[in-house]
Amino acid sequence: MKTLKKRRRVQVIVLAVVALALSTGLIGYAMRDGINFFRSPSQVIAEPPLPTEVFRIGGLVEEGSIVRGQGETVHFVVTDGGESVPVAFTGVLPDLFSENQGMVGTGSYVNGVFEATEILAKHDETYMPKEVVDALKEQGVYKETGGS
């Protein structure tokens, strides 16, 4: 009698472990496209990611770097004060997008150019994403503003 109870208990525990491992694997597989890592321009130049990898890049838009081409494609350069990365974006830029302002872009680094699929700009005169602030502080470029 004891061995039957013990066997059932072991079977239930093994089944629970297998179910937990399977569900964890399925959740990870489902989320693989939804996770985008942040990189500063210095990190992108130091260790260029694969062209198939989608990630976020952030920094300041360099002064005088915005070039509006034919159609909707816009080229500009994003910097963290240490390194600069050229960016190409096809689409409509946010209204608050401008030179010397913070931005975060989502896309891929292909042939030395970050091909952005989405561009986010600051939403007021004092806000900048935490990742961008940290990258700029690391390079010694970030200046505190007197805003709240």
Rank of each mutant, 00 (worst) to 15 (best):
L50T: 06
Y29K: 05
F76D: 06
G34K: 15
V113W: 08
S148L: 09
Y29S: 14
V78M: 10
F114I: 04
E63M: 04
A16E: 08
G58S: 07
R7G: 05
V77E: 10
V85L: 09
M31I: 04
K5G: 15
P48R: 04
S40G: 12
Y29P: 02
T145W: 07
N36M: 09
F97V: 10
Y142Q: 01
S148T: 06
I57M: 13
A19S: 13
T126Y: 15
R32N: 11
M128E: 10
K2M: 12
Q11M: 13
K143C: 00
N100D: 13
T126I: 08
F97T: 11
I35M: 10
I13V: 12
A88T: 07
S84A: 15
L60Q: 10
V67C: 01
E62T: 10
D80T: 02
A19G: 05
S108H: 13
R9H: 12
I13T: 13
G112M: 07
G146S: 13
I66T: 06
K6H: 09
E125G: 04
I57R: 06
D124I: 10
T145C: 03
Y109R: 04
G147P: 02
K122G: 00
S148N: 08
E99Y: 02
V110N: 09
V85P: 05
I45M: 15
E63G: 00
Q101R: 15
E63S: 14
I66G: 08
L93M: 15
L136V: 05
T3K: 04
T106F: 04
V44A: 07
L96Q: 15
R9Q: 14
Y109L: 05
G107V: 04
S40I: 00
H123G: 08
F89T: 02
V78H: 09
D33V: 02
F38N: 00
D33T: 09
L50P: 02
T90P: 07
V141S: 03
F76A: 03
F114Y: 10
S40Y: 02
G81Y: 05
T3E: 15
I57N: 06
F76S: 05
L96C: 03
G34T: 04
L136C: 00
T145M: 14
N36F: 11
L26K: 02
Y109K: 14
G146K: 13
K122Q: 12
E131G: 12
E125L: 14
I45K: 15
